[in-house]
Write a protein that binds this DNA or RNA. Sequence first.
DNA 1: GAGTGGATTTCGCAT
DNA 2: ATGCGAAGTCCACTC
Lengths: 271, 271
Amino acid sequence: MKVEILKDPDVKSLTEILERTIKRRTILISGNCWISYWGRASSKLKPGERIVIIKKDGALLVHRPIGYEPVNWMPGDEIIYHVESEPQQSVDEQSTGGHINFEEPVLSIRAVRLKPRETIKIFFDKVYLFAALNLVDKGEFSLYASEEDMQEAILANPSLIEPGFQPITYEKRVEPGFVDVFGIDRDGRLVVIEIKRRTAGREAVLQLSRYVSSLKGKVNRDVRGILAAPRIARGVQKLLVSLGLEFKSLDPKRCAEILNKKRARSLEEFY
Amino acid sequence: MKVEILKDPDVKSLTEILERTIKRRTILISGNCWISYWGRASSKLKPGERIVIIKKDGALLVHRPIGYEPVNWMPGDEIIYHVESEPQQSVDEQSTGGHINFEEPVLSIRAVRLKPRETIKIFFDKVYLFAALNLVDKGEFSLYASEEDMQEAILANPSLIEPGFQPITYEKRVEPGFVDVFGIDRDGRLVVIEIKRRTAGREAVLQLSRYVSSLKGKVNRDVRGILAAPRIARGVQKLLVSLGLEFKSLDPKRCAEILNKKRARSLEEFY
DNA sequence: GAGTGGATTTCGCAT
DNA sequence: ATGCGAAGTCCACTC
């Protein structure tokens, strides 16, 4: 069955259908609930009307009517669920605060994550909508103009940095941290490139500086440090120069375009 | 009306109800859709069955049947929506990939965010469930065992650090950065405490070291630096010692418990 | 308005 | 397992 929808269901039917569908279907529940969380931190959420999503892999999301982020959540993997119908008497009024319907028993959903150990308990005293959906999703997702794309674009087209630049390795680990791209310029000098997809700040400059310094100490010869980013923060330019580093403007979107062309070309060659 | 639910609605009814409820209700849509995003980066998602949430503040979430994170999203605030019914012919088959139902027109939802400028376009060719919910949520959310709580716990119970420790100020600004807690030990020496809620890494040690150094330069007398955290990263212990700093194990949960007791007590006093 | 740092960050990768 | 760095990070706070 593709979709099972219950409108204003009672706790008994809910308990039953949840036990049957949890971690087998994508589940939507909307109603009045209160929530406690204990684990890496701990939290309490007093009663209110929210949306709860439980996915096939066990991932749990609680969304309030406002805001992009879930108020409570649990990433999938190794989540164990317990569903129970409980008499309302057991609910600690003080801990819940707001209004609770004392007529019917409450639905309790307990999610336990094993690593790290943490628990979310959700209590519903009123459910407006329950839906169990048998969703199939094999659609490919592709993201363009990420930092990884920028790196790939530089490797495919080194002149993006400057004429004569030759990449040698990328994402090479150097003490401390790592370098995004590592190569040689037209004069044979070592070049370390740090890539940022957004405006580069002080942190990026200091990081690059550490790379360059540690490398200089090892190879005992000149090393150029280039910060490749769409822009550099205003005050940071001076710092960059004072540390003997360079800046190269690099637009992530342009990198994405270059990559798209390259990918299209390799597709042509393939056919 | 609290809840409006449509099961297997046609595109025409959807367009109508969406225009009436969007940014006025919490909206749930589940069906077969494909999505493109353009803004800070860009992405494409080929057809598949997902859940779309649109909140009253305009926040948009697209969830696949697996995983904790949304595959596409838009934070609320300054989001403009356009809802249209479109003939399927206009859909670029190549850009969508998988299966598309060519019988009916498709529902298109376009969300435009102004700052930064970005756009999400969602096309549905089949909707299994549509729900518009009039949710009210005023429940208070409280999170415990934050870094701030640990600070508060130390101030309330200074012996957590060591016998005889006396806090003077907290979150005091010192060059560079700031100090979490600042006080005097039983021998009258200055103490700087840096608090970390989780395993303290190299960064925390270096930060504390900077505090202590700059303070020593100013007061021209001995200053102890104590890193208070649940644990310290393995390799970093040596660095800590070599910099003349100390480590004090401090469990955030225990801090939270202490605070809870303290708060309960003050509540008793209040009544 | 931009920069800085934290997050129940999550996620991935490399040691 | 642990640690480090990116993310369409988001978010709050400071300058």
